[in-house]
Design a protein around this nucleic acid. Structure first.
Length: 509
RNA sequence: GGCCCGUUGGUCAAGGGGUUAAGACGCCUCCCUUUCACGGAGGAAUCACGAGUUCGAAUCUCGUACGGGCUACCA
């Protein structure tokens, strides 16, 4: 196994937006592949035609691209093991299922959905509230095990709707070594006869994963913990198909949980608690409903990935800030946790804040520029760079650059007048009137000179300069925030400065 | 109900027989700053419970409790 090229895959269903947990699974796959100089494959699991959502596949690929997790093989890029969409692989699965039937490891079942419902009702007891189609009841159902051979043949010949189910053996132990959890074992008696091939001829997930992982020479399977209970089905399939020596190693990742209460994090929780759950904005093509994503909210791809990586892994040193490259080097499965982690949006924002602080103004330029473009404000690059350098320490999200920096280029839309009024008086009013007049006299327009003028004038009027600074700030910025006020004064320029002072003075009456 | 997995502060977590049980987020206080941040210093709060093994248990064992996942012709 150590001789084999590492091949891992991310295998999402194109049923909607890409969830945090999905991106993290993709990320861990990617990190493992890079770390071991292997291949990272994207396979689209679209075997359920009823759940197919147009645009979802493209969206998934866009998300991976945004995050910097480019697959080596994918539907888009192709590769030696295609096609990479299960719907396009449909003809490949049936023979594996038929093969299993021939060997006696699977069987045809003709039960209708109604009959299955009926079974679940009639076999339901207090002891067993959800009866399964398993060894105890398969004899009571309509399948090639319970029916006479000639009847089965007749049904098959008449093209009667049927599925193929795995015949789970009684009382065998399936044991395997999970890369994250260690030894895990199941008794096959407690596992039901899962459907392998559906009536529409499509495989279920169970058959498709095994066949595709085999055909695509997958060496490790990373997937969410919710798959752990069906691992024995998959392992039995590998055995029954006679492919056990090629079976990949299994690694079941801890779940990402709701921040409050318990349970898996879902899109609903994000809506409810006011944070995104999807990587990028997603618009449901049917309802037109928009679900917001981390990217559009103002997250940096580096921060998003960094945050996700730490949700279930750490390097043991206390280091928290990692670039993708650093993660590729440092990542190891042995340090992935077993327990699920509650998602903490505050911590997610902290990562973004840190990444903004670490980024250079040049790195941020394009992102900030598009924020301003959306607001309809176009600013020359050098001006934008100046602003970014001045305010990036106080921005948590890229979108914060608007609130934190737009006043450099555009008069505030509103002013926090109460902040001035609480300590306002006639003397101060007179001061600002003379100050704005004196500004036109300044020959060398730079912040030390403006500041000197401000202080000199204050002293001459016998007012503490400190008491005048907050009003000045509010006049220029609109509120109690932003970089040092005289630097702002210098940047916005003489004309604009005078205009803003006059305007606020008017409003103050 | 059954099966499987898990459990160190509010959250993410280090630590795997002897520690004052790291660090981070969040919260609070102070310093810096006559703004808001950044930065700096400090603070509150924890090994789910019970037995056992041991001189000694957060660490090992067993129970219990709690939490989660699965229990579809969905993935």
């Amino acid at each position: 196994m150590s001789e084999k090229t590492i091949r891992v895959r991310f295998a999402p269903s194109p049923t909607g937006g890409l969830h945090l947990g999905g991106v993290r699974t993709a990320l861990y796959n990617y990190l493992y592949a890079r770390k071991h100089e292997g291949k990272f494959i994207l396979r689209i699991e679209d075997t359920d035609q009823t759940r197919f959502v147009p645009g979802a596949e493209q969206y998934i690929m866009d998300c991976l691209r945004w995050c910097g997790l480019e697959p080596d093989e994918s539907p888009e890029k192709g590769g030696d093991y295609g096609p990479y969409r299960q719907s396009e692989r449909k003809p490949m699965y049936r023979k594996y299922a038929e093969d299993l039937v021939k060997k006696g490891f699977a069987y045809y079942a003709f039960d209708t959905p109604e009959e299955l419902d009926q079974m679940r009702i009639s076999f339901k007891t207090e002891q067993n509230p959800s009866p399964q189609y398993d060894q105890h009841i398969r004899d009571k159902m309509r399948n090639s095990l319970s029916l006479p051979a000639d009847e089965t043949d007749a049904l098959l010949k008449s093209n009667a709707a049927h599925v193929i189910r795995i015949k789970m053996p009684a009382n065998e132990t399936v044991e395997f070594n999970d890369l994250i959890r260690g030894e895990v074992s199941f008794n096959t008696s407690t596992v039901d006869d899962k459907v392998l091939l559906k009536a529409d001829g499509m495989p279920t997930y169970h058959l498709a994963v095994v066949v595709d992982d085999y055909l695509m020479k997958i060496t490790q399977v990373f997937r969410g913990e919710e798959w752990l209970p069906s691992a024995p089905v998959h392992i039995m399939l590998w055995k029954y198909l006679g492919l056990e020596k090629d079976m990949p190693e299994w690694a079941h990742l801890p779940l990402i949980l709701k921040p409050d209460g318990h349970g898996k994090l879902s899109k609903r929780d994000g809506d409810r608690l006011g944070f995104p759950v999807y990587a990028m904005d997603w618009t449901d093509p049917k309802t037109g409903e928009l679900t917001s994503g981390f990217r559009e909210l103002g997250f940096l791809d580096e921060a998003f990935i960094n945050m996700l990586a730490m949700l279930g892994w750490n390097d043991g040193t206390g280091k928290e800030l990692f670039s993708l490259d650093e993660l590729c080097e440092t990542f190891s499965l042995s340090r992935v946790h077993k327990g699920g982690a509650k998602f903490d949006f505050e911590k997610a924002k902290w990562y973004n804040h840190e990444w903004i602080k670490r980024s250079s103004a040049d790195d941020l330029l394009d992102k900030v520029k598009s924020v301003f473009e959306v607001k309809g404000v176009t600013v020359p690059d050098d001006q934008l760079l100046m602003m970014i350098t001045l305010v990036k320490d106080r921005c948590t999200l890229i979108s914060d650059f608007w609130e934190q920096g737009s006043f450099f280029f555009k008069a505030p839309a509103s002013w926090d007048l109460p902040a001035i009024q609480s300590k306002w008086n006639a003397d101060k009013k007179v001061f600002f009137e003379s100050f704005s007049d004196s500004l036109s006299m300044i020959s060398d327009w730079s912040f030390p000179v403006i500041e000197q003028e401000f202080k000199t004038l204050a002293a001459s009027k016998n007012i503490k300069a400190g008491e005048l600074q907050l009003p000045l700030r509010v006049m220029l910025v609109g509120g109690k925030f932003g970089p040092p006020v005289f630097e702002i004064a210098e940047k916005i320029g003489r004309v604009e400065m005078i205009s803003r002072i006059r305007k606020t003075l008017e409003m103050l009456g």
